[in-house]
């Protein structure tokens, strides 16, 4: 027995409220990220990822306060991403109670930020988020601005470079699959996971629990992230773990 593969529910938060609709029967306020986090914590989530999709400066204070409230009562790791531009943003989030921060666009425009952040805060709390699209068979490119802007950067090479700069984890999202419910892009996931020494979190496209199994078994991911299948209470985290365990994957039950 060894390290368990992780299941990570993701909250998309806009101005302090969970978006994409959360429909748990026993939750009084389905838009409150603290309540939703508490629910995932009870269900046995291994971590929680909080993506601040507003990420405008006016709303930063709301984010810090929400992160701090979650960290006060949910005793599992919390990753926070969205709108991180500099080491000051990272410091503020870590002080608010984030265990890891996820750097996305800023890493593309200023790769040195990843190096600086890893040196200052340690690789263990620096996640680089990569949004990739297939451009030809077996090749994926990094896109920014929600998948609209190509960068010319090869996703596999970029991931390896970010790890050499000190990233402690890669959060890998297929922009082709995101929102489709067709399952992870397993070719992308496996290519990146096999190319780097740090854990890769697979994201984008989960529509059923077998997709989570595929992400680990075929995609070689260390962790699988999903939003909508958990938000809409289609499946619980516990059910996801049962399916993974039945497929021979080590999970924390």
């Amino acid at each position: 027995m060894g390290l368990a593969k992780r299941i990570i529910p993701c909250l998309d938060v806009d101005q302090g409220r969970v978006v994409k609709g959360v429909q748990f029967e026993d939750i009084r306020d389905a838009g409150d990220p603290v309540e939703v986090s508490r629910r995932y914590n009870q269900e046995g989530a291994d971590e929680i990822t909080f993506l601040d999709i507003t990420a405008s400066n006016e709303n930063r204070a709301t984010t810090f306060e929400t992160v701090s409230r979650i960290a006060s009562e949910v005793f599992i790791p919390l990753t926070v991403g969205g709108g991180i531009r500099n080491t000051g943003n990272i410091r503020d989030l870590l002080l608010a109670g984030a265990d890891k921060v996820s750097i996305n666009t800023a890493a593309v425009f200023e790769p040195e930020l990843v190096r600086k952040a890893a040196e200052k805060f340690g690789s263990q709390c620096i996640v680089v988020a990569i949004d990739a699209k297939q451009v030809e068979q077996g090749h994926w490119e990094i896109f920014t601005h929600g998948g609209r802007k190509p960068t010319g950067l090869d996703a596999v090479e970029w991931a390896a470079r970010m790890v050499s700069y000190g990233a402690g984890e890669i959060l890998l999202t297929s922009m082709d699959r995101d929102g489709t419910r067709d399952g992870f892009d397993l070719g992308l996931t496996r290519s990146v996971a096999d190319a780097v020494t740090v854990p890769v979190v697979a994201s984008g496209g989960v529509g059923n629990l077998n997709h989570l199994v595929d992400g680990v078994v075929q995609g070689h991911a260390e962790a699988v992230l999903a939003a909508s299948i958990f938000h809409f209470a289609q499946y619980t985290i516990g059910e996801a773990k049962e399916v993974m365990a039945a497929a021979g994957i080590e999970v924390r039950l």
């Binding site: 027995m1 060894g2 390290l3 368990a4 593969k5 992780r6 291994d46 690789s123 263990q124 402690g168 984890e169 096999d194 020494t197 740090v198 854990p199 070689h220 260390e222 962790a223 924390r252």
Partner: peptide, 16 residues
Amino acid sequence: NRKGHALKVPHMGWNE
């Protein structure tokens, strides 16, 4: 690991 898969560092996650 015993299946021959590379183990990642950092050692990150839930272990026994």
